[in-house]
Amino acid sequence: MDQKYKQAEPDSIEKAKPHMIVEIIEYVPNAIVMKNIIKKPTGNISIMSFDSGEGLTEKTVPFDSFVQIIEGNAEIVIDRVSNQLKSGQGIVIPAHLSSFIRPNGRFKMIQTIIKSGYE
């Protein structure tokens, strides 16, 4: 699981316009691509695509985050407990618990991080 991030351009999507979320980001060979939907000091919503074999290494963050798989499936490990998520499923990753994401082939997800209330 290599951390090869690529930032999609532009960095946010057009407001007040409907979007087919799964189609606003593409797969890039051997990479993770991230595009911010909303980015604010109090939190952000991002969409990410993961090529086969790409995932996120173990980390601990000081904020809750919500992850929803929107295409494909992935294993999300929280505090050493494995959770197999498929398209349409989501999970809250609690603040201060270690987590990592392991792919099961290509997949796309939305991640929402809420920072307010943790100051």
Results as ranks from 00 to 15, higher is better:
residue 66 F to E: 14
residue 84 Q to D: 11
residue 96 H to D: 12
residue 50 F to C: 00
residue 88 G to W: 06
residue 76 I to M: 02
residue 116 S to W: 06
residue 91 I to G: 00
residue 18 P to E: 07
residue 77 V to Y: 02
residue 115 K to L: 02
residue 5 Y to P: 11
residue 10 P to A: 01
residue 12 S to F: 10
residue 48 M to I: 07
residue 3 Q to H: 07
residue 45 I to C: 11
residue 30 N to T: 05
residue 1 M to P: 03
residue 29 P to E: 14
residue 79 D to K: 10
residue 87 S to T: 11
residue 13 I to K: 15
residue 111 Q to N: 15
residue 106 R to F: 00
residue 20 M to N: 10
residue 37 I to L: 12
residue 59 K to I: 13
residue 64 D to A: 04
residue 22 V to D: 10
residue 113 I to R: 12
residue 77 V to M: 11
residue 40 K to W: 13
residue 73 N to S: 15
residue 62 P to Y: 09
residue 52 S to K: 14
residue 35 K to W: 05
residue 89 Q to T: 02
residue 86 K to T: 10
residue 25 I to N: 01
residue 40 K to Y: 08
residue 87 S to F: 01
residue 95 A to F: 02
residue 59 K to Y: 12
residue 83 N to I: 01
residue 17 K to M: 15
residue 52 S to C: 14
residue 106 R to Q: 10
residue 118 Y to W: 04
residue 7 Q to L: 13
residue 59 K to A: 08
residue 54 E to V: 04
residue 23 E to V: 06
residue 97 L to I: 06
residue 18 P to D: 06
residue 119 E to Y: 04
residue 1 M to L: 10
residue 91 I to Q: 05
residue 83 N to W: 01
residue 62 P to L: 02
residue 113 I to L: 12
residue 55 G to F: 01
residue 112 T to Q: 07
residue 16 A to R: 06
residue 115 K to F: 02
residue 62 P to N: 10
residue 22 V to G: 04
residue 108 K to H: 10
residue 113 I to P: 10
residue 81 V to S: 12
residue 118 Y to E: 14
residue 106 R to I: 00
